Computed example of a mutant assay.
Amino acid sequence: MARTVFCRKYKQELEGLERPPLPGPKGQDIYDNISKQAWQEWLAHQTMLINEKHLNLMDMGTRTYLNEQMQKFLSGEDYDRAEGYVPPESSE
């Protein structure tokens, strides 16, 4: 049976992660309080931010920015979105 957590973002019991996604206390907090669904959504959103805003991951300011956005996203707060992003049209 899959492990469940009370997800901080969605405020309900959902499937949890298999292991902490980051080292240290921050990774443990995410493991204990964030659902697998919310984490996958964050990874997709983070990728979009990096690509659309042309962020340089070698820059410490960028890492700080992404960390702040991750906290906001996973806590259900207002977070930055990629300006001008247009999702691809479905081929239905």
Rank of each mutant, 00 (worst) to 15 (best):
K53H: 13
D32C: 08
Q28P: 01
R19K: 15
I30D: 02
L74N: 03
I30Y: 04
A44R: 14
L49W: 05
W42A: 02
E41L: 14
L43N: 10
L57A: 06
P23R: 07
E41T: 04
R63F: 03
P25D: 12
G84F: 04
S35H: 10
E77I: 01
I34D: 00
A44D: 06
K72E: 00
F73T: 00
M60T: 14
L22H: 13
W39Q: 14
G61H: 12
E68L: 03
D80F: 00
L22P: 01
I30M: 05
E18H: 11
Q28F: 09
M58D: 14
I34G: 00
M60E: 15
M70Y: 04
E41K: 06
P20Q: 06
Q46R: 13
S35E: 03
Q40H: 11
V86I: 12
K26W: 06
T64K: 15
P23I: 09
L66W: 00
V86C: 05
Y65Q: 07
V86R: 06
M48S: 11
Q71E: 09
Q46E: 10
R81Y: 04
A44S: 12
E68P: 04
D78M: 08
Q69W: 02
K26V: 09
P23W: 05
D78P: 07
S35K: 10
P25G: 06
F73L: 01
M70W: 06
M48F: 11
L49H: 05
M58F: 14
H45W: 04
L66I: 05
E77S: 01
T47Y: 13
P88Q: 15
N56G: 09
N56Q: 05
L66C: 04
P87L: 02
T47I: 09
T62G: 12
I34S: 03
M58S: 15
